[in-house]
Design a protein around this nucleic acid. Sequence first.
DNA 1: CACTTGACCTGTCCGC
DNA 2: TGCGGACAGGTCAAGT
Length: 293
Amino acid sequence: MPELPEVETVRTGLSQLLLGKLIAKEEHDWPKGFPNTDFDVQSFMIGVEILGIRRRAKVLIIDLSSAYSLVVHLKMTGQLVFVGRDYRFGAGHPNDSLVGSLPDKSTRVTLTFDDGSRLFFNDQRKFGWMRLLPTAEVPNIDFFKRVGPEPLADDFTATAFRERLKVRQNSMIKAVLLDQSVIAGVGNIYADESLWAAKIHPAERVKNIGDRKMNTLFNELRAILKLSIDKGGSSDKNYVNAEGKRGSYLSFANVFRREGKPCFRHPDTLIEKSRVAGRGTHTCPKCQKLKAA
DNA sequence: CACTTGACCTGTCCGC
DNA sequence: TGCGGACAGGTCAAGT
């Protein structure tokens, strides 16, 4: 699911909706997931204020006034959906969205705030996680210790991008883009989209890609991530923003989920779907050619 | 070391 | 209509 643009969209939404609210009640139905601690979770969550929402890679960090943070990974099907105090139980979600009546059978955690508004953490496939951690320890979780730089950071340059990818000379470029320890936040959608934009075959080995093409890939990846954030991300199946609304990036996508449709560069050539690095992969066979071995 | 596979889960879609 | 299998935006561990 959610890749960098989707998680960033949720972060923006939650920042506008949750700041300053006090948590009045916490409910969960997730024996093997949350809470992750054996101490009294309530004392670090109830009556505390939401201070801020951060994002690192595809992970959201909700900072609380108790000096603890709720750390959330949505994985494939996670959602964080906010509803106001006048939301009626069972009324159905008011927006044109993928969310029905809340809570639903995928709801794992519900936070109720002092003004009666609520935040639902839903996750159909239960791959996602939510953890309550001391804010100071958040950077020390395994995922953050390993994760690579943010591709949209101001100080992340094309040179730095090339240097990081070059460490994996013999790997397929798509596998490297998807590796969170190389670059943070890229998933299947934006890997396919950026490789099409740079005219690189996803199975191309990194060592076969010259500096110029690498620079193009860097620029295209950043432009695509920014465009998607601007469009509120991609809603394929489950993704919705903090208000339960879909994102519209997929209507701008060039290859993702466009198998069998004409390539926008070559109207006589159809987008193909294959499997690269274990993932469904979309390419134009005419503009993304593999170099002969 | 690099890559593949399986696991974690549930739901949907497609072919028979 | 039912059933089996493949597949789905992400990581992680184990196997080759």
